[in-house]
Nucleic acid binder design. Sequence first.
DNA 1: CGTCTTTGACCCGCGC
DNA 2: GCGCGGGTCAAAGACG
Length: 536
Amino acid sequence: MEKGVALAGSVKRKHSVDPGSLSSGFEFPISLSIRDVSLEEKPALIGEMDFFSIEKNPRPAADLDLKIKKEEPIINTALHLASAGSDHSTVDEGLSPKQEEKKGKSELAEMQAELGRMTEENQKLKGMLSQVTNNYNALQMQLVALMQSRNQLNQEVLVDGSKKQANIAAIVPRQFIDLGPGADADDASTHSSTDDEQSTHGGGADHGMQMSCDDHGGDGRGFSGEESPENSSHGWNPNKQSKVGGVGPKPGDQVQEATMRKARVSVRARSEAPMITDGCHWRKYGQKMAKGNPCPRAYYRCTMATGCPVRKQVQRCAEDRTILITTYEGNHNHPLPPAAMAMASTTSAAASMLLSGSMPSADGLMNSNFLARTILPCSSSMATISASAPFPTVTLDLTHSPNPLHFQRPPPPAAFLGPAASQPPSLPHVFGQPLYNQSKFSGLHSSSPALVEASQFSQSTHGAVSPPNLADTVTAATAAIAADPKFTAALAAAITSIIGGAHQSGSSNNVGNGAMKSGNGAGAGGLPGGWNFPAS
DNA sequence: CGTCTTTGACCCGCGC
DNA sequence: GCGCGGGTCAAAGACG
Ligand SMILES: [Zn+2]
């Protein structure tokens, strides 16, 4: 415990110093375009790397400093000095006159200064890199969301067989039968094998219906107070609220909210920063050591509005520390700044995509044990759906495989292959069962990525049977989707929505809806996209 | 002095 | 019932 805490502490400290100077002088083309339109709000966050660089330079001095450095040829100077210094080192012991010695010393000092500056700049570059990464991740996530909504749209429109098959990927319950091979192939090739974080959550019950019932009674301590805006001035004390004030909200809403709450969207992104900046204000309220992970898991709450139920967990991947796993939960009940909108809409779109097939009222789609998993091949990112109760989770994987640390997955535990192999591989509903077991199993084994291995399993079973062209079909369909001018239009609309969304309020509330408008109105429409007002 | 983070304690569900 | 683990609370400290 201490180890982890100390680690986190140090990281945090370091970061709290860095980002101001880092992000200040840095301009990233993509973020720039967004920044220009969204100047109205400036989070001026404390510890976060800023996704969109909205804040105007909080520290002009640093900015100036960086610019100056950019102008002068630092590297050449340094090299020159280095060589000069080495020459002079011999001179020092020599009989050189005082002046020369003085000169040497001054150059030495200069050198040291240069070194210091280079170090500093190195730090800055590092920060810039991480910021670029963050920006890239944000854009990728938006793209993923758009692809998802787009998929849903096409599912409605297209009737072509193969394409439809691929597009159905956006819907959980059915596709896990058909999509198995293709998805798994894709997954096995690109996944970097660290989904265990999510699957760890999903070790619990296996009935979708159970899930909804579950939190009816079981979620006592959760944030069941979110739909009571009169929450008094006290911010969040949801449990107290529900305990003291309320026997409980209306069952219908309760189920709905509970489902939304339970749905989690986790984002795996490569980031040096201790936390990706999504435009929201977060307050840390806890930190725990995850069982199999040397890195602690941090718990944050949204503080943009008192009583906002959104929470997120931030944890670094055990194997690859550069991967940051951010798990979002809940929906904002307040307007969001554009920068936050991007992330919120993305996550909510993903959540809605997940829940579109798992709503409690759905026709028993989830009433059988299953852990469905969908991969939406999308450039280098992909979304995986792990619809295992109690926390159905959508994972947006924004890391790409060309990762040097993309190690081979550890060999699946024999305990997994045993029962899995014993199951008739051709039955999808049985197919889910070993996955469920597996996910639980991986919970015990910290580093064994359940979902990846699950995909391996399915690949070994289904993939061998079915021709690989299904995967090609999926990819082709995706390419077609991406190439579809409508998609471009949707993307443009979404971006416009982001850009113009600075003043949005109420009607077209977010990107998700912007995208959904052109695509699927049902998905994120009912499910609060960026934000939804509880009872007003 | 207000706000945020830290961190041990606590609660709760779950498996044995 | 007990231990374990995930999640949350809240007092105390740090920070600006
Ligand atoms: Zn919020």
